[in-house]
Amino acid sequence: MNITAPAITVEHLRKVYGSGHTEVVAVRDASLEIARGEIVGLLGPSGSGKSTLLTAMALINPPTSGRITINGEAVLDGPRALVDLRAFRRRHLGFVFQKANLIPFLTALENVQIAMEVNDVAPWAARTRALELLGYLDVEERARNLPAALSGGEQQRVAVARALANDPTLILADEPTAALDSTRGRQVMELFARIAHERGAGVLVVTHDHRTLDVFDRILDVEDGAIQCRKNGSAAPEA
């Protein structure tokens, strides 16, 4: 891995949904960079384009124009893929979304394990590490349960474990704490900060929760599809 390169660089990203009179400019012109070992918060009013930006960075929502470079490697030039995006996702990216999005027919353990198996980790090694991660997130006693038998918070922690499974360069989380109570929410946020600082991953978290802003190294404000930078610790933005 390229330790010195930023985890991700986004240059002049623009995303337009639809065309003609249904056209919506979701992201106008966004440029940002997240270093490795850094946790960054993404704030902004509803509909300002946060999720669009995040899914574009997650390589599942091709931008209309702009460039994305991950770990020093140019990945997207506008909607054009410069690498095998799926391979890139499994090797470099981890995702957590508002809903846990676990596979319903796999147990908690298998949901984490599968992320490693698709990345060519041997099943027994994947299993051992999955158990370790679930322990790390304090859900190992639910490892053999199907997602339907887990609480929302437990599901979310399994999803976090899955995002961490392949030791990603970049973790992207879209309102990961929305389904959690404030204590759990804070724990997850602190966990993300620890992963950034201890494992050297770049972490980007979209959040509306102003009580946890102190965990971020940096906060980006999105407003009407564009990014305004601000230092950590400044006053909460008007929503």
Binding site: A58, I60, R86, A87, F88, R89, R90, R91, L93, F95, N101, I103, P104, F105, I114, A115, V118, N119, R162
Partner: peptide, 16 residues
Amino acid sequence: VRDIALLKLIGARNPV
């Protein structure tokens, strides 16, 4: 469909 999308999201190859 959702599970398949999720598999693709986490990078599962088509043969899977």
